[in-house]
Amino acid sequence: MALSEELARIGPNATTRPFWEACLRRELRIQRCGSCGRFRHPPLPGCPHCGSAESEWPLVSGRGRIHSFTIVHHPALPFLAEAVPYNVVVVSLDDAPGARMISNLLDAEPGELRIDLPVEVWWDEAGPDVVLPCFRRAR
């Protein structure tokens, strides 16, 4: 369940649409340079490493580890007052080296969240046209 309906909207463009369309199919696809093979996320029209505009969208497992996290106590926006405290995690993906995703860990008990915790993607139907990749502890 998304933190807030107000925030769980997306406005893709040509660069980011392949990611979000894959999410609607419950597929995690991460952009990879078609020339040097390096992953990147969020999507960009060119490769930051080699400059190539070629890219592909391989399916990845959705498994990864917590790279960093914060627990938000102060609601920066009024409609987050009901949601605090909530976590925000940065996930390093096992089979997309170099790519990190910002997300929420949905099943973390207080005090359990830690760096290097193994996690896996968990799909959150945030709205009729929005499926957000979130994470849960790896099973």
Binding site: A2, L3, S4, E6, L7, A8, R9, I10, G11, P12, N13, T15, T16, W20, H41, P42, S68, F69, T70, V72, H74, A76, L77, L80, A83, Y86, V88, V90, M101, I102, S103, N104, I115, A126, V130, L132, C134
Partner: peptide, 27 residues
């Protein structure tokens, strides 16, 4: 708060304030 292609990758998760971004780096 409107959706846009770049903030779509952090805003939906409640990552919306400078203190939160920096907290991740420092953690």
């Amino acid at each position: 708060v409107a959706a846009d292609p770049m903030s779509d990758f952090h805003r939906p998760y409640g990552l919306v304030s400078p203190v939160q971004f920096f907290a991740l780096l420092f953690q």
